[in-house]
């Protein structure tokens, strides 16, 4: 079972990398060649890609991420956070599309800032609420080392 979970994680990693590359490539093409290409990007690449990606994080997050090895921990943590970020990006992209706007390069900073702000707030809350426990644990560790 753990092998299956590990494989799923790797699949998610590869899928995310490939999709991100394609989206950036097509967005770049749209930016350079105009709105027809942008429409193509929105209809054929971005929305289906994000629609699929919006389901994928649910699947990944439902799996325990502890299957990652120490050596892969940093990479997979990063993927975990990026996938979390998609929860922020997807509604924004869909909203912009609903309003009839093309989603393009110009939207990336706004989406990035929103994601960063929300994630930073969650991380800060989590970090500071753990500080007290960490202090207590370290006190007990000191006593253990004195024995």
């Amino acid at each position: 079972m753990s092998q299956l979970k590990y494989t799923l994680n790797r699949m998610a990693l590869y899928f995310f990398a490939i999709t991100t590359f394609l989206v950036l490539l097509e967005s770049g093409r749209a930016w350079i060649f105009g709105s027809d290409a942008a429409m193509y990007v929105r209809e054929l690449i971005i929305l289906p890609a994000f629609a699929f990606l919006s389901v994928l994080p649910l699947l990944i997050m439902a799996l325990p991420m502890e299957i990652k090895t120490r050596k892969h921990a940093n990479i997979l943590n990063f993927v975990h956070y990026v996938l979390t970020g998609i929860f922020v990006i997807v509604p924004q992209v869909l909203w912009l599309s609903y309003r009839g706007r093309d989603v393009g390069i110009g939207d990336i900073p706004r989406i990035f800032i929103t994601y960063t702000a929300i994630y930073s707030a969650i991380f800060a809350y989590s970090y500071f609420s753990q500080l007290k426990t960490a202090k207590e644990l370290n006190k007990q560790l000191e006593e253990l080392h004195k024995e």
Binding site: F128, A134, L141
Partner: peptide, 15 residues
């Protein structure tokens, strides 16, 4: 546990 020097928060409930 005797080899742990210190523990710090790592976010998301982990240390």
């Amino acid at each position: 546990v005797r080899k742990i020097r210190n523990i710090a928060p790592a976010g998301d409930g982990r240390f």
